[in-house]
Computed example of a mutant assay.
Amino acid sequence: MSDDHTRVRDFFSARAADWDSRFPDDGPAYRAAASELGLEPGGRVLDAGCGTGRALPALREAVGPSGIVIGADLTPAMLEAATRAGRGRVGHLLLADVTRLPVRDAALDAVFGAGLVSHLPDPAVNLNELRRVVRPGGILALFHPIGRAALAARQGRQLTQDDLRAEANLRPLLAGAGWRLTSYVDEDSRFLALAVREE
């Protein structure tokens, strides 16, 4: 396992047990973001870096009982918390590295990533891996239940020009990995960037 992976796993392992209780009011933001993916009944969606699986119920709602919902995460403690919260009943929980997914090419209609992009060890390469598993015309949603400025304030830091989630940085990063940014919202109440997989 790389140093980046170990650092991410250690960071989230230490926070898994009380993750949901630290952010109890995020449910509506997850539901709203999932509804913007345009998923249809029977659809196939991956929550990449799913953590405790907070998006899984909303994604299941979107694809219905005949759809496929997968939650993949690198941190066993997060998946254990997801299981304790009953989220394994609405999606398949998978211990996996989102930089090397055990998913066949073009198998999915969409990938949802909450707080994901800032934890990717090599975003340009890793976004291409997410592209690989999504069909042409499929969707990538990069989400956070609060915007960049609100998150920076919560963490006691300033926004910088090199923030990967800034539109000026994210648009070319996505384009280089075969995604076309179609929607970008960064407000205090949420961050949501939607991109379409190019052919």
Rank of each mutant, 00 (worst) to 15 (best):
L194H: 08
P123G: 06
A168W: 08
A16R: 04
A110E: 08
A48Q: 07
D4C: 10
S66R: 15
S13W: 04
L170I: 09
L174V: 02
L159C: 13
V125Q: 13
E167H: 11
R22S: 13
D47L: 00
G176R: 02
T6N: 14
W179Y: 05
I68E: 08
V133R: 00
R15Y: 04
Y30F: 15
R60Q: 13
D18G: 12
A152H: 11
A106I: 01
A153V: 11
E61W: 04
V98Q: 03
D3W: 15
A16P: 08
L93F: 08
V196K: 13
H119V: 15
E167I: 08
A32K: 12
G147P: 04
Q155C: 06
Q158I: 11
S183N: 13
V111Q: 00
M78N: 04
L130A: 01
V185Y: 04
A114P: 08
P136L: 09
A96Q: 02
R15H: 11
D18F: 07
F12L: 08
A166S: 12
D162Q: 15
G51M: 07
G91L: 02
G115C: 09
T6M: 13
F191T: 02
V134Y: 01
D73V: 13
R132C: 02
F12C: 01
L127P: 06
G64Y: 06
A177E: 04
R154A: 14
Q158P: 10
F11R: 15
L46W: 07
R197Q: 11
A152S: 12
H144A: 12
Y30W: 06
F12W: 15
L130S: 00
D105F: 00
R44W: 03
R31P: 07
P102I: 01
A16E: 11
R87Y: 10
P24H: 09
G115H: 05
F11W: 14
G38A: 09
R148T: 10
L93I: 06
R15A: 13
A195M: 10
T75S: 03
R157A: 07
A29N: 10
L140C: 11
V111K: 00
A152Q: 04
F11P: 02
Q161E: 15
Q158F: 11
